[in-house]
Design a protein around this nucleic acid. Sequence first.
DNA 1: CTAGGGTTAG
Length: 712
Amino acid sequence: MAAASAVASTVSAISNHVAAGHLFAAIDALPACSASSLLPPSLYASLLRLATSRRSLAAARRVASHLASSSSSSPSTSISSTPTFLFNRAIESLAACGSLADAREMFDAMPRRDGGSWNAIISASSRAGHPAEALSLFADMNSLGIRPKDVTLASVLACCAECLDLRGAQQLHGHMAKRDFQSNVILGTALVDVYGKCLVLTDARRVFDGILQPNDISWNVIIRRYLLAGMGDMAVHMFFRMVWAGVRPLVYTVTHAMLACRDNGALKEGRCIHTFVLRHGYEHHVHVRSSVVDMYAKCGDIDAAQRLFNLAPKKDVVMSTSVVSGLAACGRFADAKRVFDGMEQHNLVSWNAMLTGYVKSMDLTGALDLFQQMRHETKELDVVTLGSVLNACTGLLDLGKGEELHALALKFGLFSYPFLMNALVRLYSKCGCLRNAERLLLFEMGSERDRFSWNSLISGYERHSMSEAALHALREMQSEAKPSQSTFSSALAACANIFLLNHGKQIHAYMIRNGYDIDDILQSALVDMYSKCRLFDYSSRIFELGLSNDVILWNSMIFACAYNSKGDYGLELFDEMRKQGIRPDSVTFLGALVSCISEGHVGLGRSYFTLMTDEYSIVPRIEHYECMIELLGKHGYMVELEDFMDHMPFEPTTAMWLRIFDCCREYGNSKLGERAAQRINDSKPLTPVVFVESTPDYECSGSDDAEPMSFC
DNA sequence: CTAGGGTTAG
């Protein structure tokens, strides 16, 4: 009797402390363990609830250990007096206060477990970020023959999603089918999410269609999964069905639908959803607004994007960044810069958007300057930043700056990003540091290298006259990656450089055997390779394969004629292409001029030069002037040559003077010849020249002699 | 849960 009244007063003391929110006072009032089995379970439950709401692990531990010891200290009866549900609450509380380890210890130590215990520890593990552990507990539970409750299934499904455990999800699907759970909105939706996350959208859709009353969350899940799986068209389709079914979309469902339109370039549908947004009051949500602006910017209606942006009362970073990149993408570069400069603040993404804008618009020094400014204003940078700036360096062939960026990448721990590594391989390849490029590709990229890395390396070798190395790299590449058209185009150029006809033929045959499409680029690479290897007939057969209106292919063929002493045929092609309405470019004219030189068509060549400058407004390059000098000089048009030179927009180069010098000596033009000699000597050559007219028995072509020009 | 990259070739 006395014991009972003591317990009663303890209980009321603890209850009062709990009611007053004095958690630790309540715990301190707990009696010694031996007597506590008499305390009512609801008291423990309220203590645990309070500990959980305070997130106090210390309190939860004390209550839990009190429970555990009072349970084990009553061995008199074979059945513990502490109800299992209290242990379950303790497990939940310990986990909620942040210690999964304590929860697990309690779970392992408890005398009896029911479905609730398993559910408690499984959801605790799942929530604590240990989905694999939760799944293995779930398997243990199954093997004991304990039937999971619907809540347990929901949390296990979430774990499968987390672990991308498709097989697990399929097994759960089986469980659910047996118990007719799949039409349940919550479980059905969870299953849709797992299948969607594992990218089996057909199964996700089948489950979705089996849900009796899909709610806004179910619709959101299927739409989101279609979007993330890259099936934007289906996401948009489902959005319209959702609206049609009379379910009001969640805010994020609207943004997902908008993003799906953006990904698909679906401007029409995007406009439609924009109208929906305005009509149903979603337009005040920042993310919705941003997604609409972004949709317009990406789908090519940049004016609509800018209009909305200008009307927006608050222009946040995200929306401004969308507009900046949209403007930059469509070439309205100055406008992009204006918006960028008008932004209240920049973050990493907005800096990057502007940087890539500069690179896209080919203002590469502008990109480097902006990067400089960025480094002053923020410490942040990432792979995108470095990738863009590296692209700028590559374009500028600025190896020094590129190396600095490489060092910076290492300093920021940004290695092993294939995108960045490929940018570095490209930089080093383009700049001729093939050793560095090769080292990166072979030793640092490991299995991360792909066909882009190899292609950069191979084209680097080819362009830097290391044709054998290019072909060797092609072999290496073939054992791990499928070469692309561009790979072969570099390889063919390499064969052409060193006249490896058989190798070139093999590549040609390989491409045909393996079904590669021989496009304009490959066609011209083949024309080039065969013509340099003196198989002119092959070149013209390749050329005549298809009627192409690609200038560069025509150029290759015209040069093929020139290499193979068929200048007149090349000039016919030149006329033919103009007849077909193909606009010649500066390379075409170069080919025409070269043909005129070899065929001795001085007047024609002069008229082509005029045609190029006057009719086609092509600014002649140094090579064109060299051709004209050669054309006039080689055929003895000395008066015209002197006149031509006097009208050049720049001072002839030393190489030009040297050629003029030779021509003057051959054809006898002492006035110009002496002038040439003077210019040559002004450039301080190792061997000064003196102008003396050629005697008939002097052989000009013997110019390999030690002192070809000074025979004073 | 909204914004930034995407490579290679004649």
